[in-house]
Amino acid sequence: MGAVSALVHAGPGDLDGIVLYDSVGEDLYAGLLLAQEAGVWTMDFEGRPFDGKPPTPYILACRPEDRETICRLVLWKGDDPC
Rank of each mutant, 00 (worst) to 15 (best):
M1T: 12
M1I: 10
G2S: 13
G2W: 08
A3W: 00
A3Q: 06
A6H: 04
V8M: 08
V8P: 03
A10I: 09
G11C: 02
G11E: 00
P12E: 09
P12S: 13
P12I: 09
G13T: 05
G13I: 11
D14P: 00
D14Q: 11
D14G: 12
L15S: 03
L15N: 01
D16N: 01
D16P: 01
D16I: 02
G17V: 12
G17A: 15
I18R: 08
L20K: 05
L20M: 06
Y21A: 06
D22N: 15
D22E: 14
G25Q: 05
E26N: 15
E26W: 03
Y29G: 07
G31I: 02
L33R: 14
L34T: 10
A35T: 01
Q36K: 15
Q36N: 09
E37P: 01
A38M: 14
G39T: 04
V40A: 04
V40C: 06
M43P: 05
M43W: 04
D44F: 07
D44M: 07
G47H: 04
G47T: 05
G47V: 04
R48M: 09
R48A: 12
P54D: 02
T56G: 06
T56F: 11
P57A: 10
L60P: 07
A61L: 03
C62T: 07
P64V: 05
P64E: 07
D66H: 13
E68T: 13
E68N: 12
T69C: 01
C71R: 11
R72C: 03
V74R: 10
V74I: 14
V74E: 07
G78H: 07
G78P: 09
D79I: 13
D79E: 15
D80Q: 07
D80A: 12
D80I: 07
P81Q: 10
C82N: 10
